[in-house]
Simulated scan of single mutants.
Amino acid sequence: MESIDTELAAQIRNDIILGTYNEEERLSEARLSDKHNVSRTPVRLALRMLEHEGLIRRSQGRGYYVNAPKVADIFQAVQVRGHLESLAARLMAQSPGRHNILPNLENAIDEIDKLVNAGKMDDASLRLMQKQNAYFHKTILQNCGNEYVGFTCSRISHLPMLEAGSMVFDQQVLSTQEGIERSLFRLRLGNSQHKVIFEAIQSGDAVRAEGVMREHSNTMVEYIKVFEKRNDELTIKDLIGYSGLSVTSDQETTE
């Protein structure tokens, strides 16, 4: 069970990302305490967490001010995550103990195959796909042998689309049967890349594992570019709306 300050930080984080607070708006400890019906101590701790994440900034003697992420920030962070994940794949392929972890990766791939072959794109199916996809990516990050890779990824995981293994499902595309078929094709392609990454790690081909993982991770960058073409001024809220996913969804259910 999460502590009060951690839960409170998640609520305030969600409000910042969704635009409930304006850029540079001052966050009052007293008002937050009243709004969330908690004492000022957890509020103070929650604000320190959010300052550490870069979502708010502290002005000496004046309190905290909102520093909401912008689409450009998400774009840059996605690129960083892609490099970190590709490095993790390379390191895992070089790890002598990788064979103990391979069955877990293979199981995630098999589960995604089953879900895609079922042909369903309802919310329940999408979240199950997300769960298995997240497991695949997190397993590589956590077993690459370099704890700083996973740690660095975790520093940006609070941003939309940045949790390891996060997936984006374009709700406009899913509104038609043709769009559903296109999305299923994309999922099959993504899982085929998982299989190539798995085989490269299994055989110890570090260069191939790194290269395919980088290509795989760039999918999110391409999606942001697609969404930018639809909007003159794309916002974080637009990204969340297109994906149809809540920023407060369970960490285990988030490509």
Rank of each mutant, 00 (worst) to 15 (best):
E2F: 07
I4K: 15
D5W: 02
E7R: 14
N14A: 11
N14E: 15
I16K: 10
T20E: 05
Y21P: 08
E25I: 06
R26Y: 05
S28D: 10
E29D: 12
R31A: 11
L32S: 02
K35F: 01
V38N: 07
R40L: 14
R40C: 06
P42G: 06
P42V: 09
V43G: 00
A46K: 05
A46N: 09
M49L: 06
M49Q: 11
L50W: 08
E51P: 01
H52V: 11
H52C: 05
G54H: 08
L55I: 12
R58Y: 07
G61F: 10
G63C: 03
Y65S: 02
V66R: 08
V66H: 14
D73N: 15
F75W: 11
Q76E: 14
E85C: 06
S86A: 03
L87F: 02
G97Y: 04
N100C: 07
E106S: 14
D113V: 00
D113S: 01
K114F: 02
K114I: 03
A118S: 08
G119F: 08
M121G: 00
D123S: 12
R127E: 05
R127M: 05
R127C: 03
Q130I: 09
K131V: 01
Y135F: 13
I140K: 11
Q142C: 08
N143Q: 05
G145L: 09
N146K: 00
N146W: 04
E147C: 03
V149I: 13
G150V: 01
C153W: 03
P160W: 09
P160R: 04
P160A: 06
M161D: 11
M161V: 15
E163K: 15
G165M: 01
G165C: 06
M167W: 02
D170R: 03
Q171N: 05
Q172S: 02
V173E: 10
L174H: 13
T176E: 13
E178W: 02
E178H: 10
I180Y: 00
I180L: 09
E181N: 00
R186A: 13
R186N: 04
N191R: 07
Q193P: 01
K195F: 02
V196C: 00
A200R: 08
A200I: 04
I201Q: 06
D205H: 07
A209V: 00
E210L: 04
G211W: 02
E215P: 03
S217K: 09
N218Q: 12
T219E: 04
V221C: 01
V226T: 14
F227P: 01
F227G: 03
E228V: 01
N231L: 06
N231H: 13
N231R: 13
S243V: 09
S243G: 15
L245I: 09
V247M: 14
E252T: 11
